[in-house]
């Protein structure tokens, strides 16, 4: 076992539609054996003669030992690249690089953990739950989304979690409301020690804020930001940058892929995503149209 990523030609085992998303299981032993929860894989889309050069990054829902090792990813079909992926069938080959990025940090002791998220990103929480449960931790799920079709894994959460709360804006599954209505209560009721999050960026911001108000540490995966901004997944291209302040108080632009995707929630400058904060290291000192050039 090694913690370095590999590039491999994975074989598609199954592709299933799950609510609004697609769940794809791939035979990729070298990735499965190296994987740690929170890491992701980067898929090349479009086949051998593709004109699409950006790798699509997905968190891993679960790894299994079947067929020497499988990984399952969950994704939304939002653009031609993910559309191509959704069209793959059993026995097709997919060029995958992984596992990539920094995993969730795990508690040393068997503590209480709240795992919260929404959208296809919530899938990453299940691999984490598996590891936490095996370490004797308590796992409490809080899944949120606009409606039932955007909440991945609600039944699974009820099955594997010690508790599971579901909340949708339209009440089509679980309680009617938003994460703000439910997360503080769950944190208090369960006496959780740590909060883990994965899902849409706005949700991560809410998670961090609520955890912070209760003095709890949060670890969140900025997978969705990476999907929107990144091109390689391997830390080369420097396009998935977000502002994070360090222990020394200095804000730096860091890569969502290689410095994340799991980050301490309280370190991310959520309101400044998509900007270079004026006090960030290396921020332009004067605003000008020509500043920077294109290269």
């Amino acid at each position: 076992m090694s913690d370095t990523p590999v590039q491999t030609s994975a074989t598609v085992l199954t592709v299933r539609q799950v609510q609004d998303y697609h769940a794809m299981t791939l035979v990729a032993p070298a990735i499965a054996e190296r994987f740690r929860p929170g890491q992701f894989v980067a898929a090349a889309v479009g086949g051998a003669h593709t004109a699409r050069l950006v790798r699509r990054c997905f968190g891993v829902h679960e790894v299994k030992s079947d067929y020497g090792g499988t990984v399952e990813v969950v994704f939304a079909d939002t653009e031609p690249g993910t559309g191509w992926l959704a069209g793959l069938r059993s026995r097709d080959q997919l060029d995958l690089v992984g596992p990539l990025g920094r995993p969730f940090r795990l508690p040393r002791d068997p503590v209480g953990c709240v795992l919260t998220g929404g959208g296809p990103g919530a899938a990453s929480l299940f691999a984490l739950a598996d590891t936490l449960l095996r370490r004797g931790c308590k796992v409490h799920f809080v899944l949120a989304g606009p409606s039932a079709r955007q909440v991945f894994g609600s039944r699974m959460a009820q099955r594997v979690g010690d508790t599971a709360a579901i909340v949708t804006e339209d009440g089509s599954v679980g309680e009617e409301g938003t994460l703000d209505d439910v997360l503080p209560r769950v944190l208090q009721e369960t006496g959780a020690d740590v909060v883990y999050g994965c899902g849409p960026t706005d949700l991560l911001r809410t998670i961090t804020q609520i955890a912070g108000e209760l003095g709890l540490p949060s670890q969140v995966s900025v997978e969705e930001f990476l999907q929107r901004t990144g091109a390689c997944g391997t830390g080369l291209c420097m396009t998935c940058m977000l502002p994070v302040h360090g222990e020394d108080g200095v804000t730096r632009m860091v890569r969502a892929c290689a410095d994340g995707p799991v980050l301490r929630g309280d370190r991310v400058r959520w309101s400044d995503l998509g900007t270079i904060p004026f006090d960030a290291l290396g921020a332009p000192r004067v605003l000008s149209v020509t500043e920077g050039g294109s290269r």
Partner: peptide
């Protein structure tokens, strides 16, 4: 040191 430009910094175009 240079922080560079804000995201999005990349767009996929044909090939």
């Amino acid at each position: 040191p240079r922080a560079g430009r804000p995201t999005p910094r990349v767009a996929e175009t044909p090939s």
